[in-house]
Computed example of a mutant assay.
Amino acid sequence: MHEKIEIETEYITLGQFLKLANIFESGGMIKGFLQEQGVDVNGEKEHRRGRKLYEDDVVEIDNAGSYIVASKK
């Protein structure tokens, strides 16, 4: 089951999403993690912090869990 992370806008960048989900302590940790390991977005490996995520996109992070983008609308 995916943990829902709600956003108030049409989209959110991957870096902002990871910070909102409280998985990492700082933006620097997010940057380093994405450069070295990356995460799966809708089943594809992603390393870009600026990747836009929209409602129903699924982000899977090794050893941290699975998250889905949900709209607060």
Rank of each mutant, 00 (worst) to 15 (best):
M1K: 07
E3R: 15
E3G: 01
E3N: 14
E3Y: 08
K4I: 03
K4D: 10
I5K: 02
E6G: 05
E6M: 03
E8R: 00
Y11F: 13
Y11K: 03
Y11M: 02
T13E: 13
L14Q: 04
L14T: 05
G15R: 11
G15M: 13
Q16N: 15
Q16Y: 04
Q16F: 00
K19E: 09
A21F: 03
N22R: 11
I23F: 01
I23R: 02
I23H: 06
I23G: 06
F24G: 02
F24H: 02
E25Q: 12
E25H: 10
E25L: 06
E25I: 02
E25M: 06
S26C: 08
G28F: 07
M29V: 10
M29W: 07
M29F: 14
M29N: 13
I30E: 00
K31V: 05
K31I: 06
G32V: 06
F33I: 11
F33N: 08
L34C: 08
L34Q: 08
Q35I: 10
Q35H: 09
Q37S: 14
Q37V: 11
Q37R: 14
G38D: 10
G38W: 06
V39Q: 05
D40E: 15
D40W: 01
V41G: 07
G43W: 02
E44W: 06
K45Q: 12
K45Y: 09
E46P: 03
E46W: 00
R48K: 15
R49S: 12
R49P: 11
R49M: 11
G50P: 02
G50W: 07
G50T: 13
G50C: 06
K52T: 03
L53N: 00
L53Q: 02
L53P: 03
Y54I: 05
Y54S: 08
E55M: 01
D56N: 14
D56Q: 08
D57N: 12
V58N: 04
V59G: 05
V59F: 02
V59D: 01
E60T: 15
E60R: 13
E60G: 09
D62P: 01
D62C: 00
D62A: 11
D62T: 08
N63F: 13
N63T: 07
N63H: 15
A64H: 12
S66F: 06
S66A: 14
I68G: 05
V69T: 07
V69K: 01
A70G: 00
A70Q: 04
